[in-house]
């Protein structure tokens, strides 16, 4: 997908292009049924520190970036594509995607 990109001038001024900047967060977690030994280890450790009642600990990763796109739907479509093809391995991982206009 080719998008017209925002072009920054030397003064920091933004040239007039019809795109917006979005902040994106992709939270990658292991799919249900996939072993999460890091989560299990944390869960076993917490009671030793006096934190009782903790369960369902999951360890994942958070990938954050900004993205220039025509609109929010286009931004989301692009992030979903990159998540499926690169940011996650769909065999073992799920992605929770959030997209919001930058600066809000």
């Amino acid at each position: 997908m080719v998008l017209r990109r925002r072009v920054f001038g030397g003064s920091g001024a933004v040239c007039q292009h019809e795109t917006m900047l979005f902040t994106v967060q992709v939270e990658v977690t292991l799919r249900p049924g996939i072993a999460d030994p890091q989560g299990a280890t944390i869960e076993r450790s917490l009671p030793h520190l006096g934190f009782d009642g903790v369960s369902h600990v999951q360890v994942g990763k958070s990938i954050r970036f900004t993205l220039d796109a025509a609109d929010e739907a286009a931004a989301r479509a692009e992030v979903e594509d990159m998540s499926r093809r690169f940011l996650t391995n769909p065999v073992i991982e799920d992605a929770a995607i959030s997209v919001a206009p930058a600066g809000t």
Binding site: L30, I34, A35, P37, Q38, T41, N89, V91, I92
Partner: peptide, 17 residues
């Protein structure tokens, strides 16, 4: 090879960390 799709499935972290 699994990431490239030449073989199916995936390798996850060892049981027991």
């Amino acid at each position: 090879l699994t990431e490239a799709g030449l073989l199916p499935g995936a390798l996850q972290k060892n049981r027991g960390l």
